[in-house]
Amino acid sequence: MNAETPYAEQSLARQANDLARDLMRADPRIYWLDLAVTASLTWAAFAVAVTAQSFGLTLAAGAVAVLALYRGISFIHELTHLKREDAPGFHLGWNLLIGVPWLTPSLLYEGVHILHHAKDRYGTARDPEYHPLARRPLWELAVFLGVALLAPVATTFRFAVLAPLGFLIPPLRRLVTARASGMVINPGFAREDLERAETPAWLAQEIGAWAWSWTVLGLWVGGVLPTRVMLTAAVIFALMTFVNQLRTAVAHYWENDGSQMAPLDQFRDTVNVPPPALMPFLWAPVGLRYHALHHLMPRLPYHNLGLAHRRLVAALPATHVYREVEQRELIPALGRLIGRMRAAR
Rank of each mutant, 00 (worst) to 15 (best):
V184L: 04
A151V: 05
V184D: 00
A209T: 03
T199E: 01
S74V: 14
P332G: 03
Q53G: 15
V221W: 08
K119G: 02
A277C: 06
R25K: 12
P317E: 09
Y322Q: 15
P105D: 14
L305F: 15
V50Y: 13
V184W: 01
R342Y: 09
L35Q: 04
T232G: 13
P88C: 13
F237G: 10
L293K: 13
A63Y: 06
G218M: 12
V184F: 09
T42Y: 08
V216D: 06
W254E: 00
E255Y: 05
G287W: 01
N256C: 05
T51E: 00
V143P: 03
R191Q: 10
F242M: 00
I338S: 09
P88H: 15
R25T: 01
A343C: 01
A249V: 06
L307S: 08
V153Y: 11
L246K: 08
R136Q: 13
G123R: 06
Y302E: 05
E255P: 13
E195H: 13
A234S: 08
L141T: 00
L312C: 03
M24V: 07
I73D: 10
A16Q: 04
V50S: 04
V112F: 05
L172Y: 11
I331L: 15
G93D: 01
T42C: 13
F144P: 05
A47G: 07
R323A: 11
F90K: 00
G258P: 02
T5E: 12
